[in-house]
């Protein structure tokens, strides 16, 4: 039995040879897993063809897990939100934002309300919301937590926990939509593209929930790559990845995000997210 355990340990620690030169990427789990899996498997196939290396998509269970995998060099590329991208680049010197969706340069958050609240479409933040229940998305989300919290604090002049009778974290945007639709929470804040995606897919009964406010614009999602990929995959590899992402024009692929196309992005584009993150105490 002891021998068996030793052997077991040896097997565990042996590096997996097949993955040595595989380019691995991940994405923050901001939506339903099946949808993410389908979308990013297509991206993996596309990148493998363009870059002529093995490309593997690895799903993770939390925003932090995506940042950690990137930081630990277990993935080299990631589709991050604004905040998670800033966290990741902060922890990995030399890493850079490569590309963002056209929509990401001017992203917004939707505040949604269950019909039972009596709040009207486009009504804006108001004192009528006090003492209702409210849910964010993931704790590490930009459009589901950071920016909505920022605007809530700005409007009400206090922490959301004081404004609302209950504040929750649903985990992701799809779940925020369904929790508010079911009335589990009266109010919620979420990524507007996910909302529109869910409405288009017929998953939301728009008679029961509506959008009461949309935030001002801010930069959000982006592809971020580690600085050391050139050493590992050859000179100019990061630039080739960037070009491949910018060249993505298959409508089916773009629709799955949904984005109308990808444009170049830089680390500096996200300075405002960094500042807000620091202001809310989510970044040091």
């Amino acid at each position: 039995m002891i021998k068996g355990l030793m052997l077991a340990f040896a097997v565990l620690l042996a590096p997996s040879l097949a993955s040595a030169e595989t380019f691995v990427f991940t994405a923050i789990p901001d939506e339903d897993e099946t949808r993410l899996q389908q979308r990013f498997q297509k991206v993996a196939d596309y990148l493998a063809e363009e870059l002529e290396v093995d490309v593997r998509f690895v799903p993770v269970k939390s925003y932090a897990a995506a940042v950690t995998a990137f930081r630990n060099n277990q993935v080299q590329l990631a589709w991050f939100g604004g905040l998670s991208g800033v966290q990741a680049r902060e922890h990995v010197p030399g890493s850079r934002a490569l590309a963002q969706g056209v929509e990401d340069a001017e992203f917004v958050t939707y505040f949604i309300a269950h019909e039972s609240t009596g709040l009207q479409e486009g009504e804006g933040l108001s004192d009528a919301m006090r003492d209702m229940t409210f849910t964010f998305g993931s704790k590490g989300s930009t459009s589901g937590r950071l920016m909505p919290e920022y605007y809530l604090r700005e409007h009400f002049g206090e922490a959301p926990e004081e404004t609302f009778s209950r504040v929750g974290f649903s985990g992701n945007h799809s779940r925020t939509a369904s929790l508010v639709a079911s009335g589990a929470y009266q109010l919620g804040a979420l990524n507007y593209t996910v909302w529109e995606n869910e409405v288009a897919a017929g998953n939301i009964d728009t008679d029961r929930v509506n959008v009461v406010w949309e935030t001002p614009q801010y930069p959000d999602y982006q592809w971020t790559i580690r600085g050391d990929v050139d050493e590992r995959f050859g000179d100019g590899f990061a630039d080739r990845v960037q070009q491949a992402l910018l060249d993505m024009d298959d409508p089916e692929l773009l629709d799955s995000f949904p984005r109308s196309g990808f444009i170049p992005a830089s680390n500096d584009d996200y300075a405002v997210i960094r500042e807000v993150g620091q202001e809310l105490g989510l970044l040091d």
Binding site: A8, P15, S19
Partner: peptide, 22 residues
């Protein structure tokens, strides 16, 4: 039991490689 204990390590899946500097 010995059979299970011997087989189990091979059935854990590969996951992602460890980077020891982490």
């Amino acid at each position: 039991l010995p059979f299970y204990l011997l087989a189990a390590p091979f059935l854990l899946g590969s996951g992602l490689p460890i980077v020891w500097s982490n």
